[in-house]
């Protein structure tokens, strides 16, 4: 039998935490997105012709949303579980009658919800700058939700693994940010030299951005089905790692 109350309170208090730091949680990703818009969309975009029939400003919207989703999911989820480990309050969760699945549902669910809300806010913000038209809204929502969940899982893993605040920042800084910037948010892959095109295919973010962009404009670097497959694959790898971590009590129980 599930401990529904526990999932509810973990979720609720994680969301409350975001509410308390509203500015940091919701405003800062929106502000940085607006800045990207001003710089890339208007200043530079004005000199770039439309890409495959889509104006540059509109073209970068899906990539910008992904950029925010990935970084926010990872930082929210990693912080959410790292902090109680750091302060020691995790003792209570460990001594409570809850399963690992419930802990994940609470923490990852909250982190994913937060980034989902951020994604929607950015989408709405973008609507002020460019004319948006979403050809496949269901696919769009699907990609949005799957991305929030899988990268929140990744953040959760980082939060369990990290043993200091430096380590907590390390992976986002060294791995996620480069992957995201090289993930085709601001360009299509075929704009790159052939060698880099091949390298890009090893970057999971390319598939995300491509699939997400396809749901807007039917313009993509790789087939949308391959994109979906890659996202699901990524999510299941993260799930497996989390499951293993809990099973062995990794960094949680001595």
């Amino acid at each position: 039998m599930m401990n529904v109350q526990a999932v509810k309170v973990i979720y609720k208090y994680e969301m409350l935490r975001a509410w308390d730091t509203l500015l940091q949680s919701f405003a800062s990703p929106v502000i940085s997105t607006v800045l990207y818009f001003v710089v890339f969309g208007s200043a530079i975009g004005g000199r770039i012709e439309s890409i495959e029939g889509v104006s540059y400003g509109a073209f970068i919207v899906p990539g910008l949303i992904m950029l925010a989703l990935l970084t926010q999911s990872v930082s929210n989820a990693s912080f959410g579980i790292y902090f109680p480990r750091f302060t020691g309050t995790i003792y209570e969760t460990l001594s409570a009658p809850i399963s690992y699945i419930e802990i994940i549902l609470g923490y990852v669910g909250a982190a994913a919800s937060k980034s989902f809300i951020i994604g929607l806010i950015i989408l709405a913000t973008a609507g002020f700058f460019v004319e948006l038209n979403v050809v496949h809204p269901i696919w769009m929502m699907g990609f949005l939700i799957l991305t929030c969940i899988s990268f929140s899982l990744l953040g959760f893993i980082i939060g369990l693994w990290a043993e200091s605040f430096e380590q907590l920042q390390l992976i986002p800084l060294l791995v996620i940010t480069p992957l995201v910037f090289l993930g085709g948010s601001f360009y299509t892959i075929d704009m790159l030299p052939p060698a880099w095109q091949t390298v890009s295919l090893f970057n999971p973010v390319v598939y995300l951005v491509s699939g997400f962009r396809w749901s807007f404009y039917e313009v993509s670097d790789v087939s949308v089905h391959i994109s979906l497959l890659m996202v699901l694959l990524f999510a299941s790898i993260c799930l497996t790692i989390v499951w293993w971590m809990f099973k062995t009590g990794y960094r949680l129980k001595h």
């Binding site: 401990n3 109350q5 309170v9 208090y13 969760t93 009658p97 809850i98």
Partner: peptide, 13 residues
């Protein structure tokens, strides 16, 4: 809030 959290964590309404 913290005691409401604790109660919920232990599955109590």
């Amino acid at each position: 809030d913290t005691i409401c959290f604790s109660r919920g964590l232990f599955g109590k309404k």
